[in-house]
Amino acid sequence: MIPDNIQALAPNMVQWRRHLHTHPELGYEEYDTQKFILSTLRAMGHHPIVAGDTGVVVDIGTDGPIVLARADIDALPIEEESPIDYRSRREGVMHACGHDGHTAMLLGVAQVLPQFLDKIPGRARLIFQPAEERHPGGALKMIRDGVLDGVIRVTGLHLQSELPAGKIGARPGVQSANSDRFDILIEGKGGHGSAPHHTIDPIPVMAQMIMAMQTIISRQINPTDAAVLTISAAQSGSAYNAIPSRAELKGTVRTFNQDVQNRIIEQMRQVMEGTAETFGAHAELQYRKGYPSVVNSQEEWKIFKDVVEKFAGRDVWIDVEQRMGGEDFAYYLQQRPGVFWNLGAHDPRYPYPHHHSQFNFAESVMPLGVWIMVQTILAFIREPLSPSGARQTENS
């Protein structure tokens, strides 16, 4: 199914991907990554420009409808523990989510796309976006720098290590969750560990809050409304014989529905204030709404599914479930119709989830990713916008 000229890109993409994996950079620090992308694109004969501080944009094709395709380029603050020979050389930084593969595939698209766009009027705008993993997300900076100007549709992909290698899918409508973060700061009164009656110990306050907040989802939210409240860090004190004066909780909330999101915030505040008052302490909630839900437009999802079935085969398609993960590609989809899709990349040698210190994926799927991305761009260029899609573009 995959043409020989695209399959032949595999060694280059593996080389690009492993170079990026060896030299990962965090969000808004991707200076070496940016230089590598710029030099690689220029060697292909393209004329890329800088956007979003550490991002890259390149237009390919002639005048006509513009379709945007995006890859994210940043890594995570994780110390890699993989036994591979191309493991990260940067202490405490690792490509643990597949962004190195996304970048390599979009470079592959840049390599082959000119030969396809020679035959039709239209342009592809390939963007290499920084800081997807760093709130508030690099997508907003790229948008402010004008990457959506003139664009009629958008698309992007994400490798999924838990899906069978070579399977492709997307979901019409809501595909990912609202992704929020919170901090709870608890103020008590410190003192000596031998005299707790002279203190207001923040640690029991923190413990009580943790237990009480677990009931928000199970007892305050309708069971038919999917939601997650995770407390991921609890910090207080450092000595054996001293009661600290402060404690801090950190965590995340994931929802699909804005009303549910707001109700959880209200319940968290009530639990926090009530618990603190009971113990004579004071607490403050710092809640930050993060990435909105990824919402694929119905028409573009159908176009994409037809592309997959035509150019990869019906047996390749997989109906993906809604995910609680966050993704700042949602910001592009708020302003232009499009589809964000998944490419299965499970490698049985690396049975580790995304954001794990030994995460890896099957590099063999990258030519398929390029092939489907190319054909999606072409289909999005050829297919006229529906009236609703046209209005969305004009009003954004």
Rank of each mutant, 00 (worst) to 15 (best):
G274A: 02
N262D: 15
P292I: 04
T275Y: 07
R269I: 10
A283E: 05
G280Q: 12
R254K: 15
I264T: 01
R254F: 06
R263S: 08
G274C: 07
R269M: 14
V294Y: 09
F256I: 12
E273D: 06
T255G: 09
E273C: 09
Q261E: 12
M268Y: 07
E277H: 15
E266A: 15
K289Q: 14
Y287D: 02
Q267Y: 08
H282W: 01
A281H: 05
G290C: 04
E277C: 12
A276P: 05
E266C: 13
T278L: 05
P292A: 00
V253K: 05
Y291E: 04
T278E: 13
E277I: 14
T252V: 12
R263K: 15
V271R: 02
F279C: 05
G274T: 09
Q286P: 02
E277R: 14
V295Q: 09
G280T: 05
Y287Q: 04
G280I: 09
A281M: 10
M268K: 08
R269V: 12
R254C: 08
T275E: 07
N262Y: 04
R263E: 11
P292F: 01
E284F: 02
F279L: 07
T252C: 03
S293Y: 11
G280S: 13
Q286A: 15
R263T: 07
E284K: 09
M272L: 14
I264Y: 03
R254Y: 06
A283Y: 01
Y287H: 10
E284R: 03
Y291H: 01
D259L: 14
N262S: 14
T275K: 02
E273Q: 14
V294Q: 01
T255I: 05
D259E: 15
Y287V: 02
E266P: 11
Q270C: 10
G290S: 13
T252D: 11
V253I: 15
A276Q: 12
N262H: 15
G274K: 13
Q258S: 14
R254E: 06
T275H: 06
G290L: 07
A283V: 07
A281N: 05
Q267M: 04
I264V: 10
T278D: 11
N257C: 14
Y291M: 11
S293A: 08
I264M: 10
Q258Y: 04
N262C: 14
M268H: 04
F279S: 06
Q267T: 11
V260F: 01
V294W: 00
A283T: 08
T252E: 11
Q286T: 12
V295Y: 09
G280V: 14
V294A: 02
M268Q: 00
V295C: 11
R254W: 04
T278W: 03
T275Q: 09
H282Q: 04
R288I: 09
A276T: 00
E273T: 00
R254V: 08
F279N: 12
I265V: 14
V271D: 00
A283H: 03
